[in-house]
Design a protein around this nucleic acid. Sequence first.
RNA 1: GGAAAUGUGGCUGAGUUGGUUUAAGGCACCGCACUCGAAACGCGGCGAGGGGAUUUAUCUCCUUCGAGAGUUCGAAUCUCUCCAUUUCCGCCA
Length: 427
Amino acid sequence: MLDIKFIKENSELIKMAATKKHINFNVDELIESDKKRIEILQKVEDLRAKQNAVSLEIPQAAPEERSKKIEEMGLVKNELKDLETELEKVMENWRTLMLKVPNVPDMSVPEGNTDEDNQEVKKWGNPKTEKEFGFAPKDHIEIMEAQDWVDFERGIKTSGFRGYFLKGDAALLDVALWQYGMQKWSSKGFTPMIVPSLVKKETLLGSGYLPQGQDDLYNDIDGDYFAGTAEVATMYYHAGEILEKKDLPKKFISFSPCFRKEAGAHGKDTKGLYRVHEFMKLEQVILCEANHEESVKYHEELTSYAEEVAEELNLPYHRVVNCGGDLGLGQVKKYDLEAWMPSKNKYGETGSSSYFHDFQTRRLNIRYRDEEGKLKFVHSLNNTAIATPRFLLMIIENYQNADGTVTVPEALIPFMGGKKIIGNPVF
RNA sequence: GGAAAUGUGGCUGAGUUGGUUUAAGGCACCGCACUCGAAACGCGGCGAGGGGAUUUAUCUCCUUCGAGAGUUCGAAUCUCUCCAUUUCCGCCA
């Protein structure tokens, strides 16, 4: 959500933002609706003032005056009732439109419509192909099924489409990644948290996943939802609060199960662990002062930490800057990190890093007092730290040996009880 | 799941026979004075969101006492629904 004053003063900018994000949004309709809203609001407030004034006079009025006053009040009330109904109608339309206003993308965001138009801005490591491996690399499905590390058949029997069981050393390696991540980020001053996945509707409205993301979310019969990322609960943690400036920035590393319907991706990646309905994620979240430079600084910082993981685990990756059409409604700028997948001979997304200015915190009402004592909305940012099993399959594919065993990345050995190689020779 | 009690501004806490409390008092915070400096004392200020006017500093109005609806000329105060907390009972990883 943006400030209505800002929207009115910068309607051209909002138009450009919608165009750049390839979003259909009519600012003029909102401005028109706001004019109407203010107009009726003024009338309503005048009548309320009159009502308050008369009701104060009543107890002091002489008995014979009293009934006349009460009669007068009746007229005011009738008029007020009609106007309030009208106001509510206008407000409903106004609120709906306000939730659809796109945030303004940064100048450095490239033009484009889909992820095809994202631009590579950094590349690290040498993507391994058959030549470097010295054998034809297999995909994670073949390796993991041969090692009895995954059971899709029983996963689907139990959970439905995209269901899976992780087993044996793969399950241990998955846990090792979480532990490695928790330790890494907490040593950088992030507060480790395990956060709810089952959340209320308002919680999702706050971070902007509703109403837009309705189709991708699971919900229960009580109307609660299962969040698709730990960001949702983490952002709601301070909702409605006024923070101390001295406590900023707030940095969190949050862990939770994540649920996504993957609507619109039904034909995509139907096999394997790349795209699943239920997974685990460590998420980085930062709340900082309301200042563009601060946002940019922490955006680069969050991104670099995720890159450190890929580098410490020696996974070739590249970073792309997302084009306008690939940005969410609230995002100012976004980077995707993509790691090398030998089986597909291309990069696959492992996480995305974005900042929002005060788009989310306006909805969430998270503020702080600046040095002049004025209340401001904090800025928010988030980035995937480690999402599994997607990250797990990247490791398995990149660290596979010719006989089907998998070498444990050095950084993970301490979390695997010292084990350096997992699996049996199966090929 | 059942029963009872409670829910007031950053915190604490009065107000619950409905009407100058249109939210007292205290703590914290800010300013002034005192002091070599500080604490204590003293004086003054101090919730949030929004509208309007203008000499842009102030004036003025509306909303806000967990959320929503209702009764009333008038609701923090009465009624209903929901939510949360606490205590007791039941069930249970």
